[in-house]
Simulated scan of single mutants.
Amino acid sequence: MEPTPTEGEAEAQTEQVQPPEEEPLKVILKHGQELEEEQEELAEHQPLEQEDLNFERFKRRPLPQRTLHQKIDDLKTYLWNAETKEFMGRSGKSWSLILLFYAALYAFLAAMFGGCVFCLMWSISPYHPTYNDRVMPPGMTMAPHLEGHDIHFNASERKSWKKYARSMEEHLRPYNDGAQDRKNIRCTQDGKYFMQDDLREDEERKACQFKRSWLGECSGMQDPHYGYSQGKPCILLRMNRILGYLPGEGKPINVTCEVKKGPPEALGQLQFFPKSIFDLKYYPYYGKLRHVNYSSPVVAVRFGSVQYDTPLQIQCKLNGKGIINDSPTDRYLGSVTFSLVVGA
């Protein structure tokens, strides 16, 4: 038989058995942590309180209204801060650097622009275009030209035709005989070009005279009303200037007028002054810098027997070599069209 332990031995065995009892404490702690984690997860899924849904508290609170005196003081401080010695928020050094920068910038831009203009003016001639290989044939203009190419008047009503007579007078004033005698020379080489290419490029070219008196009954010297008071109106036709252009290829350019819409017999007889041609002696044109006193030749047309109260659409055309007068896109190229209604 085994001996029974004594009381002392029993206590010692009891003390030796106590340490394994700590394991349940660890299990409890671990279980407690799991409980806390579960509580946190539950808290995350809990619905928000009403205070949490109140977003008004996150809005920016309005600033208190400032008085006019405070605003004026702030403006004064912004313009000049006596404490920091700053003008409009910048010190004197800062303003100096800014002004220096912009002065250098704009000086550079001005120099670059001036250099570009200088190179451009240096590369082109002021007397003739560098490229003129696409110059179109000349167009034609007419006078009087008031708010379109419409001439409507009654011969017995001075108010209805006075504006046309005034326009004719303005167009013919540079052709006064006295002015032509002073400025231009009398040319005798009819039917030939007046070439002056042998002169220096910058030398002034002479121009042939074209006197107002050559227009006869349409000159305004015999009849200051240009036939409008008699129901026999006059118009002026002029070919556009083109620098260096030689019209007709050696032959004069002829002018004709015909009815485009309306009865042809209503047009009656036409008179042309001084002739129905543009003489070659007025060409070529050398530009306004060299042909200072140049006067473009004109052809005056007088409708001496036009039928009263008959609307007519009349077309006057240039005819000659190298002339285009039937362009579908440009009605002023080599021709001009106008309406004429003469009342009694």
Score class of each variant (00 low, 15 high):
residue 172 L to W: 03
residue 101 F to C: 06
residue 126 P to T: 02
residue 190 D to V: 10
residue 95 W to S: 12
residue 193 Y to H: 11
residue 213 S to C: 07
residue 209 Q to L: 10
residue 145 H to V: 11
residue 99 L to D: 02
residue 121 M to D: 07
residue 216 G to N: 02
residue 168 M to Q: 02
residue 149 H to V: 11
residue 173 R to W: 15
residue 212 R to I: 01
residue 99 L to Y: 12
residue 122 W to N: 06
residue 205 R to V: 06
residue 170 E to N: 13
residue 111 A to Y: 08
residue 145 H to S: 08
residue 132 N to D: 09
residue 161 W to C: 04
residue 100 L to I: 02
residue 115 G to P: 04
residue 128 H to D: 03
residue 144 P to M: 12
residue 151 I to V: 02
residue 118 F to V: 04
residue 154 N to M: 09
residue 129 P to I: 11
residue 211 K to I: 00
residue 178 G to S: 09
residue 114 G to F: 05
residue 108 F to A: 03
residue 132 N to E: 09
residue 121 M to L: 05
residue 86 E to A: 13
residue 164 Y to A: 00
residue 96 S to Q: 07
residue 104 A to L: 10
residue 88 M to H: 04
residue 186 R to K: 08
residue 162 K to E: 01
residue 172 L to P: 00
residue 86 E to V: 06
residue 89 G to Y: 04
residue 133 D to P: 07
residue 94 S to M: 01
residue 159 K to C: 10
residue 124 I to K: 02
residue 84 T to N: 08
residue 112 M to C: 03
residue 134 R to K: 13
residue 204 E to G: 07
residue 112 M to Y: 11
residue 188 T to D: 12
residue 130 T to E: 09
residue 108 F to S: 02
residue 164 Y to P: 01
residue 165 A to Q: 11
residue 135 V to D: 05
residue 142 M to K: 03
residue 111 A to C: 12
residue 160 S to M: 05
residue 176 N to Y: 06
residue 90 R to F: 11
residue 147 E to G: 07
residue 192 K to L: 15
residue 106 Y to L: 03
residue 158 R to W: 01
residue 188 T to C: 05
residue 86 E to R: 09
residue 85 K to P: 01
residue 99 L to V: 10
residue 212 R to Q: 04
residue 129 P to N: 02
residue 210 F to Y: 02
residue 207 A to W: 00
residue 170 E to P: 12
residue 208 C to P: 03
residue 152 H to C: 06
residue 111 A to K: 10
residue 210 F to C: 02
residue 177 D to M: 07
residue 132 N to F: 05
residue 102 Y to H: 00
residue 102 Y to C: 07
residue 100 L to Y: 14
residue 195 M to V: 13
residue 131 Y to Q: 13
residue 165 A to T: 06
residue 180 Q to N: 06
residue 111 A to T: 13
residue 199 L to W: 08
residue 112 M to K: 08
residue 191 G to Y: 15
residue 203 E to V: 11
residue 114 G to C: 05
residue 98 I to H: 08
residue 119 C to D: 13
residue 137 P to I: 13
residue 122 W to T: 11
residue 186 R to I: 04
residue 215 L to V: 04
residue 184 N to K: 10
residue 139 G to H: 08
residue 106 Y to R: 00
residue 108 F to Q: 04
residue 85 K to Y: 13
residue 197 D to M: 02
residue 153 F to W: 07
residue 100 L to W: 01
residue 169 E to K: 12
residue 86 E to H: 07
residue 174 P to S: 14
residue 94 S to Y: 05
residue 185 I to R: 14
residue 163 K to N: 08
residue 102 Y to M: 01
residue 100 L to V: 00
residue 206 K to D: 14
residue 208 C to K: 10
residue 187 C to L: 05
residue 131 Y to P: 08
residue 172 L to Y: 06
residue 88 M to L: 15
residue 91 S to I: 00
residue 93 K to L: 09
residue 181 D to G: 14
residue 163 K to G: 00
residue 166 R to N: 05
residue 153 F to R: 07
residue 195 M to H: 13
residue 136 M to P: 04
residue 196 Q to I: 07
residue 148 G to D: 12
residue 88 M to T: 12
residue 95 W to V: 00
residue 158 R to P: 03
residue 101 F to V: 04
